[in-house]
Simulated scan of single mutants.
Amino acid sequence: MCKAKILFVLLFINSILYSQEELKLYKNIYTTSDALKKSGHILDLNKEIFIKAKELDQQHPSKYFETAANYLNKSKFNEASFLYYTGLMRFKYYNSSNPDYQESNDGALLGSLKYAIGEPINMYLKTDINNYISILEKAVEYCKNNDFSFYPKSKSPENYNNQLTSCLKLKTDLENNKTKYSDLWNEETKKIKISLKIK
């Protein structure tokens, strides 16, 4: 990917995420999560997101992050989270398998996207560990059952499966240590909510 394209993608992401104030986004993450938990809809994921993922499978993996940013902007946090983790597996596979990979381009782009999009998404997912586990499970299941047509699994099945395994390890860790992570994240959330003046 050329440097001009990388710069464009980063500017696009930044304009979406930071066109609204950062504090407003964080407040929205916590108030939306609280409302979804209270209504019993925290695990809901609009099925149309799988159609969107199929469309994104035909494009460079950075498109997953661009689209996840759009969903964040619309407060569709589960959909954004699903696209983020699916895109993360796609991009890591692409970088590990692409013979034209350049650390200064694709590697740097992935690192920037992980920071810009991953921070608010993980902030949201840490509000409910069962939802976090559910999103990871759905992302892995999607990648198991749907090839990445932009850069098919057949180019490097081992690297493709390595990404699924890595995501499954995270899911298993969360499942095996629910209490530890929940307690830690609940404390973090309380402190952040106090600083944001959220009741």
Rank of each mutant, 00 (worst) to 15 (best):
K155C: 01
P152M: 05
S154Y: 13
P152Q: 04
N161K: 14
E141Q: 14
N162L: 13
Y151D: 01
T165S: 06
K138I: 04
D147Y: 06
K138A: 10
V140D: 01
V140G: 00
N159W: 13
Y160K: 01
Y151A: 02
K155S: 11
V140Q: 05
D147A: 06
P157Q: 14
N145T: 07
C167R: 01
N146S: 15
Y160I: 10
N145P: 11
S154Q: 13
Y151I: 00
L164H: 09
E141A: 10
C143R: 13
F150A: 00
S149H: 11
K153H: 14
L136S: 00
Y151H: 03
Q163D: 10
K155N: 14
K153M: 08
F150C: 02
K138N: 09
N162G: 04
N159A: 15
S166G: 13
Q163L: 04
C167F: 02
E141H: 09
Y151W: 13
K155D: 07
P157R: 06
C143L: 09
Q163R: 06
Y151Q: 01
C167P: 00
P152D: 02
N162T: 06
T165A: 07
C167K: 03
A139Q: 04
Y142Q: 07
N161P: 09
N145E: 11
F150D: 00
P152V: 03
S166D: 06
S149V: 07
N145G: 07
N159T: 10
E141I: 11
T165M: 07
S156L: 09
K155H: 08
S166F: 04
S156W: 10
Q163N: 05
S156G: 15
V140T: 04
C143Q: 15
K153C: 08
N161V: 12
N146C: 12
S166P: 05
Y142W: 06
C143P: 01
E158N: 12
E158C: 10
D147E: 05
N146E: 14
T165D: 08
P157W: 12
E137K: 07
F148R: 02
D147C: 12
L136W: 02
N159C: 11
C143T: 14
Y151N: 00
N159M: 07
P152R: 06
S156T: 13
L136I: 03
F150N: 00
E141F: 09
N146W: 02
Y142A: 02
A139K: 03
C167G: 00
L136C: 01
S154H: 14
A139T: 03
P157H: 15
Y142G: 04
S156V: 05
K138F: 02
L164D: 07
P152F: 10
K144I: 05
N161Q: 14
E137W: 04
L168N: 05
L136A: 07
Y160T: 07
K144N: 13
L136T: 01
N161L: 13
F148T: 04
F148V: 04
